[in-house]
């Protein structure tokens, strides 16, 4: 797979990076990536993958654009309200970079369909916003042996980790169980600001790009925790668990109950 003259010019600023050249760009070009969620994290993730020249991006989201999305989900404007998010995002990304293929998949990811939906990709980047889908995405990627680039945000706290099947801890190795209903508020309850999802989504995109380009990545077996109110960046060392039900010796399906993602106890995370 070669690069056209237009592509060489478009990507010239990254092609001059000392560790990034034609080989790395061609690797990105032939890569196929799924982004789950086209929201606060999904917008920066898919935008930076698009700008970098990832050859095919499948955006999976079943929501429609809402006015409350517009403080952080920068691929949409007021004219997109009530339109299908994945489709509007795919159009916006195609306009930014017509050299690549962006597909909209207007579907809800569930524990039942995740294993089929997330098959055959070079990487999956998780930008969803609730525990049932996050655990479904993790377990599907572990079983399908697809690298998963995880990120999550709550108020001014953000987390990211890169999961390489057979090599690193997965999300379930670190958190075998989701917290009970009401313990961890959602962004809707606790609040979220666009610069924060932008920060974490950019980190996820960068890790994905470096992985696809065959470069070293920093967040293997590492949970990055950012507290942006104090600007502290901490790296927690992670270890694989042999008895992990997702990536361990024996896979055991463990769907997380939707009840876990209830909208109660909104004050739990507030100061």
């Amino acid at each position: 797979m070669s690069l056209s003259l237009d592509e060489i010019k478009r990507y010239s600023r990254q092609l001059v990076l000392p560790d990034f050249g034609s080989r790395e760009q061609r690797r990105l070009k032939k890569s196929k990536v799924a982004v789950t969620g086209a929201g606060g994290l999904g917008c920066p993730i898919s935008t930076y993958l698009t700008l970098a020249g990832v050859g095919r991006i499948d955006l999976i989201d079943m929501d429609r654009v809402d006015l409350t999305n517009l403080n952080r989900q920068f691929l949409y404007g007021p004219e997109d309200i009530d339109k299908v998010k994945a489709e509007r995002a795919a159009e916006a990304l195609t306009r930014i970079n017509p050299e690549i293929e962006v597909n909209a998949i207007n579907e809800k990811v569930t524990y039942d369909n995740a294993f089929d939906l997330l098959k055959g990709y070079d990487a999956v980047v998780d930008g969803t916003d609730n525990f049932p889908v996050r655990y479904a995405v993790n377990d599907a990627c572990a079983v399908n042996k697809v690298p998963l680039f995880h990120g999550a945000v709550l108020m001014y706290e953000g987390r990211a980790m890169s999961i390489i099947p057979g090599e690193t801890a997965c999300f379930r190795c670190v958190f075998p169980e989701a917290p009970p209903a009401g313990m961890v508020p959602t962004c809707r309850e606790a609040g979220v600001i666009g610069a924060m999802t932008g920060l974490i989504g950019s980190i996820q995109a960068l890790e994905t790009i470096r992985y696809l380009a065959d470069q070293e990545i920093a967040l293997k077996n590492t949970l990055l925790i950012i507290n942006a109110d104090t600007m502290s960046f901490d790296k927690i060392r992670l270890t694989r668990r042999e008895n992990c039900t997702a990536c361990g010796e024996k896979f055991v399906p463990k769907p997380v109950d939707e009840v876990c993602d209830t909208r109660i106890a909104a004050t739990e995370g507030r100061s």
Binding site: D126, D129, F131, L154, M183, V184, T197, I225
Partner: peptide
């Protein structure tokens, strides 16, 4: 000491 549950927002 760091004490944390999983978070899921996005």
């Amino acid at each position: 000491i760091s004490i944390l549950p999983a978070v899921s927002g996005g």
